[in-house]
Design a protein around this nucleic acid. Sequence first.
DNA 1: GATAATCCTGACATCGTTGTCAACGGGCAG
DNA 2: CTGCCCGTTGACAACGATGTCAGGATTATC
Lengths: 354, 354
Amino acid sequence: MTSLSNLNPGSSARPTMRQVAELAGVAVKTVSRVINGEPNVAPETARRVLDAARSLDYQPDLHAGNLRRSDRRTRTLGLLVSSVDNPFAGAVHRAIEDAAVGRGVAVFASSLDDDPDREREAVAAFLRRRVDGLILTTASENQAYLEPELRRGTPIVFIDREPSGIEADAVASDNFGGAARAAEHLLARGHRRFAYLGDLHSIQTARERRRGFLEALGHGGVPVDDVAVIEDLHDSERAREALLRLLDGPNPPTAVFSSQNLVTVGALHALRRRGRHRDTALVGFDDVELADLLEPGVTVMAQHPEDLGRTAAERVFARLDGDTSPPRRVVVSTTLITRGSGEIPPPPGQSTRP
Amino acid sequence: MTSLSNLNPGSSARPTMRQVAELAGVAVKTVSRVINGEPNVAPETARRVLDAARSLDYQPDLHAGNLRRSDRRTRTLGLLVSSVDNPFAGAVHRAIEDAAVGRGVAVFASSLDDDPDREREAVAAFLRRRVDGLILTTASENQAYLEPELRRGTPIVFIDREPSGIEADAVASDNFGGAARAAEHLLARGHRRFAYLGDLHSIQTARERRRGFLEALGHGGVPVDDVAVIEDLHDSERAREALLRLLDGPNPPTAVFSSQNLVTVGALHALRRRGRHRDTALVGFDDVELADLLEPGVTVMAQHPEDLGRTAAERVFARLDGDTSPPRRVVVSTTLITRGSGEIPPPPGQSTRP
DNA sequence: GATAATCCTGACATCGTTGTCAACGGGCAG
DNA sequence: CTGCCCGTTGACAACGATGTCAGGATTATC
């Protein structure tokens, strides 16, 4: 009874090459050749195999093949972002996907919420699945734990954050320069009382922006002690509360810098709530949807997430294609978009320098 | 020379269980037991194995194991959305990821731009990777091609679109009812001249919204012929142009319904450009970031993408856990958020019904 | 017509892991 | 002391595919 192969019709088992081979009356290896478009198969044989494959709805098992294949490529990429829900990360993700899809590469994405523990787990989950490369918005202080993997030849590209404790490719915005330019923009309007609303201090990018902003203010003659620096604002709600407290305080800022998109949203809410949106200057880092339709429009240092994503993907694929040049750090410049909020001057009597 | 196993120190080759076994002085199967936490391993042996694994930076190959394992689970999910760049899709994605991560399941996401060809390719790419389940925002007219896969036991859940040509689980917003309620909301303010700005007619969801909107207008005594129905607006630029043409036309609408977030953004731009944002009513389907800070605030029929994503993931996991009940259609209701733009009355003299 | 080159095909080992089964050794009951 | 049980361990086959190699058929070459 069981000596014949399992040919029960309509069987719901997933067909394998063996079954396609049986149905087509050829050897498994011949099916493999046809499926992979290898040369030297008689057209008539190929047709029979394709017919059989189609009639069984056969889908090759990429991972089984990969196990034996010499190139050992899963055609899979792992992407770590703060959250797939964040518009910036979404744009990065899309650009990477666009670069990958043409090569038949699928993308895993994982949200970290900038939690170092989740980073380790997510990286391990990717490596267990043998991704061909990693693109990481890292959340950890130090990524030396990736060293062995890097030595094994897995391309690792850091995006939106510089690596630390490891030499690897990186693609990031000009955080320092962009934040500095934002500061200069506000200084030029005559502001002297600033607030800096920053993301988690543990995030390298956030520290760069802070440094850029404060150094530029220093060059403009504003002592750091006069700047209200508030950090660790990781979502819009916290940012809103923080700015509300400042606005209600004894010496509210005349100009506000918000260091990322969620913080900008929170700041906008706070200003609106206190009716201060027309007399308090605001520049945000990273662009925000509908920023141009608000009144006043929101001035931002726009990043170019598509460029970041595309460039990071190109780096990964270049490495996979054999590029063994030293790690490269690509800096993508930012663009100041003036829409009104950043051009608000300080109230009269407070604009002149001492 | 080659009789000894490859033990060159610092070798950059990826370690396998065999190498861990050699280093620990045990059989491969024992390593497997330790790595998978199977019982009946002497503590001392387990320690030696773990030490060896750690010192080699060993990561098990999930796919090799899966090949032999009886449950045949890759712990991987495939998600198809219109674009990972779209805020709605991002929220759905995040909710699915949150449900999956606890089970050790990783998520592939693919953007379709609502192109049926890309759908077929992306599904094939997922199936070749043997995802455990599919969550699809389908772009095709008919998904009967998934029938064999469904029979094989792969859970397939449609999200944000109803399946056609196949019986499968589906989770979607109340598109018809939500759009109808938007129409009623505008009718109640006395509007009689409407514009409907719709997404691609090929999208089932878009057709439902159109049907809901127009039927409700019909019940309100507004003949369909009096409604400016413009469809196939797939991005904000096209939506902006379309509404600009209407506003510049002989008989501009006093109330506008935009059928998804990108269209809403385009409509907002058009109204603003013509300075009509304070006297033309607007209700959008799907919420938009910062909608509450615009003047007037943007009234929307908010969807609940987190609920959609979470519910879809729950359906997939329930199926994987053995639920064989008939396919279920889950409808997630929508929520009207009044912020001003939808409460604008028609200009005097046009508000009364004939 | 003989020989070589080429095309087509299949048998077999193998990739890294797990399921099965059997063997070994020590503890314990009879 | 014998026999049984159980905890521990490893040998081996197998998962679904591809690389290697060899053999038979066909065609080209002299």
